[in-house]
Design a binder for these strands. Sequence first.
DNA 1: ATCTCGCCGTCTGTATACAATCCTAGGCGA
DNA 2: TCGCCTAGGATTGTATACAGACGGCGAGAT
Lengths: 251, 251
Amino acid sequence: MAQEIEAKTHTTRALIELRQRILSGAFAGGTRLFEVALAEELQISRTPVRAAMSRLAEEGLLERVRNGGFVVRSFAYADVLDTIELRGVLEGTAARLAAERGVTEAKLREINDILTRLDACFGAAPGAVDFVSYSDLNGRYHEALSRLADSLTIEREIARVTHLPFASPSAFLPTGLKPEAFGRSLRIAQAQHRAIVEAIAAREGTRAEALAREHARAGRENLARIFAGDRDVASAMPALALVEPGGRDRA
Amino acid sequence: MAQEIEAKTHTTRALIELRQRILSGAFAGGTRLFEVALAEELQISRTPVRAAMSRLAEEGLLERVRNGGFVVRSFAYADVLDTIELRGVLEGTAARLAAERGVTEAKLREINDILTRLDACFGAAPGAVDFVSYSDLNGRYHEALSRLADSLTIEREIARVTHLPFASPSAFLPTGLKPEAFGRSLRIAQAQHRAIVEAIAAREGTRAEALAREHARAGRENLARIFAGDRDVASAMPALALVEPGGRDRA
DNA sequence: ATCTCGCCGTCTGTATACAATCCTAGGCGA
DNA sequence: TCGCCTAGGATTGTATACAGACGGCGAGAT
């Protein structure tokens, strides 16, 4: 997805454009996308539009409908919670398998290096955190963690779930919380990061799994806080743009 | 997938034909599929071939390659093990969430009904088992289990993983084991089926999860037994047709 | 009033011609 | 001999015309 910048083909451009529109909530969930209309709008023929929609279906952003055609997939609040839960379960599995199977020195060094650099994001004051660096390194940490089990199957599935913006490990970091409370929760998260790697290194599979799950739970609780609090904050979160408003069950 | 029989469109026919070929191992893993060649072979134009391949990519049987085109995804023995492990983890999550969130009387009755009918598959003698009915009902049980958590997200992900033939709950049932040993392992599996539902009904989430994982483990051990034993049996298993021979690491 | 049948419009399915791109093989030059 | 560069073939990308299928709407019959 990184090399998609400066796209060459019409298909790729349509893919990027449509993905952006869906993620930004330009289409309500359940909206049917018509080839002809989009083709006209994007000034291309139906063929690349179809190709792009097909790939968006692979990404899980569109759904095929009976007798052809696509609709925008709709996500309710409950789906967001379940997806974050699922990420926790999968990352927990990656952590457990890594602990059980053992990891190479090189990989351990790599993730420990990320941990060190994450530590460097924190200043003396509770609210002093380099958010930008933290967010970037947090993403790298989770990516490294998913690779620790040395299983392409697990890695793939985590990547798949994580692809949805609201399930990304860094989804709810730059929230509207007060800097102080926010910095505190980030310090706790970082402590969990360390504990997970320590458990893996000590071959404590069950502990590693439990910690990884609890870590995902933190993200989930940030989300719940956003939802329970200011609704304007929630609707301003880019990661929540494609989530249907209303249904807020299953706390 | 059930309504695909008596397919109307060329795309659907191509999809079924190609899927069948891949699953039967007609293409080695890594083989690149060319639109023109397949179009000629199937006596249709490139357009429906492309559409079919795109859907096979969604199913995880094909992979897109850089600069266009598809290759048949290749599965090593380690991937099979990881996928079965993953199924156990996901079914375990479904079971745990079902226990934690509670299930309706109707759903509980439905899965208990399946359990009763599974019991009826066993005769007096150890080797006396109605394999055909058991296999069918076993599939239904696992499907009902995946729906018990009342989460489309989880259900979807289980369906996705289960779609691969070697990860299906019924993948390694009709094996080349001796009837008596086979019947015994099926009775154990059925005991696990019951225990999982009992744990869910009693709201024992952790127990339900552990049991579901262990249950998947049984399938994995059947697979290992097949692999360790007669290699001819392994190569005769339809579910293993698309698995690369050779690599047998990670026991 | 309601049900059914058939027409028609709209949307996707398909074929095909042409364009663009990528990879490779071969030759030329340093 | 090695490397680069070019030319050509192979393969996908794109546009477009036509075909087919589904659904909605209206007219007619009961």
